[in-house]
Design a protein around this nucleic acid. Structure first.
Lengths: 242, 242
DNA sequence: CGCGGGGTTGAGAACCGTCAAAAGTAGTGG
DNA sequence: CCACTACTTTTGACGGTTCTCAACCCCGCG
């Protein structure tokens, strides 16, 4: 059975520290209290407001976290892939709901045993600390995305983010796979489904991206795509619109 | 001389853990490698992209963190108050710029000595871990704010957030003090200065808030204010059912 | 007194959200 | 295999809110 794996991006320069990989001892300790789970697409992992019971490490598949809007409605807070940790809580209650976007395999760490583990092997703390810094940078990029006012720019940033994720790129030829529904993407990007659909199609008609099947998209014009993702002035997307 | 203080909100239920306060020993260790600093309003603490040298703990005053937009321009990522930690980096470089909004006093922890400290006293790791969880929740609330489409709703959420911060409430009668410029608030809320100005005035004319002087604002109609801050976008995401 | 940054106000246009309905897709069971 | 249903995505027309641009005002400061 495979062991838990936590993917970490460096906080310090990579060459200055070797904290990025878990030692064999750490992996063993984690594996000892990890409870493997397999869930099918759409399954609810936990619900916002529920009492905190466990933290999860995603091994395979995609998970979305949603937060209830005060006053009703749900917003997608983020998408998670292999190597990610989730289960953020406040005052003993989950702040998000988590649901499987695809079929997933994950490890469950009961919070009690995890706390004990962190006490026994404090070097693990640093691992979690660095992982959390990564989540923070991710949340900040999400905020950056939401600051864009144009739908196409938001979409470009979303796709760019997806592309950078190791789990986002489909196996073949750098085409992106979109496991989640348009409703989920739209919610994450702060748009309506309609606006998202139109943005996708404007990009496609402009020749910047191309769909292969329903959920597979490839970037065709790297230069213009990068310009969009970087937030350049609206440019001549309107011209290419014809 | 006062010691560093890191304000933490509970991850677990408060009664289940006593990690919220630093022990005398921890405080001493932190103080030993803390370099106190005093900066005047507007001073730049560090610049995005600069090599990571130190983490900071804010003792008094308000600090803003800004990130450069790819393609020019600056966005305000967050406001920090007493007890907050800042200095987030990626691959050895700061991801934000940090500047003093008011005159500030802060502690500087050189990254080298801090890493050593965390190795020597791993129980401190948990403190930083929990603090970081708090920052993550904050970033998520920022995203929630940015998902609102109406300027008044965003402003209400910003004021509400400010109100919840221990450093946000002015000394007197729950009136809020706004140390930062409208440009900063607008940037944080993803609005233009004009839209922000109009939103403020609409709220004031509606009798929901009242200004005392240019930078002091009081909530006059708690019910309508709460309704604005909680106002939900009619958006609904396909919810997952177990 | 002149100057400059921050804040205000106004007019116009662009963009997205809303509502409504059709077209396409997936999953189910006969 | 096909028909049926439920869901997701697409398209269209319309209205509203914010952005843009531009000028003006206010206040503190040299």
């Amino acid at each position: 059975m495979p062991d838990p794996r936590i993917s970490i991006l460096p906080f310090l320069r990579a060459r200055d520290c070797d904290l990025l990989a878990l030692t064999a001892h750490q992996e063993a300790a984690l594996a000892a209290c990890a409870e493997p789970l397999a869930l099918s697409k759409g399954a609810l992992i936990y619900h916002a407001g529920d009492p905190l019971e466990a933290i999860y490490n995603l091994e395979e598949g995609v998970v979305k976290t949603c937060a209830p809007f005060p006053g009703g409605g749900l917003r997608v807070a983020g998408f998670l892939g292999a190597g990610d940790l989730f289960g953020l809580a406040e005052d003993g209650r989950y702040v998000h709901s988590a649901a499987a976007v695809t079929a997933v395999r994950l490890f469950r760490f009961a919070i009690r045993t995890l706390v004990n583990l962190l006490w026994m092997d404090p070097s693990l703390d640093l691992t979690f600390l660095l992982k959390l810094c990564g989540e923070l940078r991710e949340a900040d990029r999400h905020a950056a995305l939401l600051m864009r006012k144009d739908a196409i720019g938001r979409l470009a940033m979303f796709l760019d983010e997806l592309r950078r994720e190791p789990w986002g790129k489909a196996a073949l030829r750098g085409a992106l796979f979109l496991p989640m529904s348009y409703a989920d993407i739209a919610s994450y990007a702060g748009l309506t489904r309609e606006a998202l659909s139109r943005a996708f199609h404007r990009m496609e008609r402009a020749g910047i991206i191309a769909f292969s099947g329903r959920r597979r998209v490839a970037i065709k014009d790297e230069r213009r795509f990068a310009r969009l993702a970087a937030g350049a002035p609206p440019e001549d997307v309107a011209a290419a619109f014809a």
